[in-house]
Design a protein around this nucleic acid. Sequence first.
DNA 1: TATTGTATACTTGTATTCAAGTCAATGTAC
DNA 2: GTACATTGACTTGAATACAAGTATACAATA
Lengths: 234, 234
Amino acid sequence: MVIGMVFGEGKKTLGEQAYEIIRENILTLRLKPGQTVYESEFSTMLNISRTPVREAVRALHIEQLIDVLPQRGMKIALISERKVEETRFVRESLEVSAICNIVDQWEPAQTKYQDLYRALASNLQSQKQVIQNGDAVQFLQADEAFHRLLLSAIGNATLVSVVSQMRGHLNRVRLLSLQEIPYTEGLVREHEQLLEALQSKDRDRATSILSAHLSRVSEDIQVVKDKYPDYFTD
Amino acid sequence: MVIGMVFGEGKKTLGEQAYEIIRENILTLRLKPGQTVYESEFSTMLNISRTPVREAVRALHIEQLIDVLPQRGMKIALISERKVEETRFVRESLEVSAICNIVDQWEPAQTKYQDLYRALASNLQSQKQVIQNGDAVQFLQADEAFHRLLLSAIGNATLVSVVSQMRGHLNRVRLLSLQEIPYTEGLVREHEQLLEALQSKDRDRATSILSAHLSRVSEDIQVVKDKYPDYFTD
DNA sequence: TATTGTATACTTGTATTCAAGTCAATGTAC
DNA sequence: GTACATTGACTTGAATACAAGTATACAATA
């Protein structure tokens, strides 16, 4: 029923590992929106008892990635256009705040900003590389890394974590739309423009590019919604 | 060890009820920052088994309100100045975005905005009432209600929920500072000014009042940190 | 035939039991 | 006296057992 579930090493609890594995399978659509799943499935699949599975499932329920129907089972949450718009708004607010914060403090002389620039530039190259083989999941990972680099620069771990939680509700739409409308080149160009705006300390340009960049999902959702009506609600 | 733990009625699971009760006890400082607690304590206290207690505790651990020391117990999270500043930033970003959204769409003719105005004005009266008996917890509840009314107006449930999560890390500082520095009148006046700015559609004034209003905690924390050093880390 | 009651095989929710790590007290060798 | 091994009483982590709600198949009944 699900593939790609392998436990890693480390001192994480089984529940934490199960959470990461199941979440990953939801975000990459290996678990289909609307699909019915049971705790016992995950339990046998991961070869652990229901207790840590339940811990993982409750966390995903709080995150609204899983709907629980008491005594009847669980369903992988459908993609909600409303939820996508809500999380998009939150993400845009936070990323715009963050970029303002960076631009205002940007001093080309400081090594930490030179490091940031180099890291972003390097990531841009990876993005271009990844475009070649056209793997949407891989591109999304590079895209996430780019934004994460930016956000991490202001040193606010809570903000990074909130944005990454919001991303959970945007990822599936982005994945579908990348498969349907491959405009990855455009996205990479926007990343480049953002980097330029940062370098020239152009606050207004940076925020407007970022806003437009993050707003694309609102348009894309209409297309994929028609293509995959079963995955959506609202 | 803890008081005020009573189960309510409803169709919530024991785990969800336990979560709310324990969280409330943390935010109101009945459970002291740094205090060691055990699953079995909550279990006997609430007269339920460890399983739903554990569910509640894991959620609070994810929220970073409880630190888990494997095989050794748990500690109520100390107040982290860093975490307070991080959550303050996130909250301010989101509330400012929300207020901009409202001001831009504010049309005095619309009944929904008239309702909002009335609700806010009514809440302001409650705030003034509550000031009289000087109960910090009660005032914080009214304050929370005021901000929640504003946020709810833009119809973004995710944003409301994120802000309320952030509030969890600000509440304890606010509670302590209200007990030490009773400037509640000032806070109420800022609420009034914010409402005026809204009414006159003065976007810049609204955002600057709100920013200043939400930034107070950064100053207050220094005072209470000296008064209650045991409650803090960083 | 249509409907209703019921047994049954599921599910999640909760309680209990077992496993394994931590720490402090205690006893012992040196 | 001091270092060190050992024991035992704790803890959380994980597995299992039990309780209770839900849907479905199906037989009894009008």
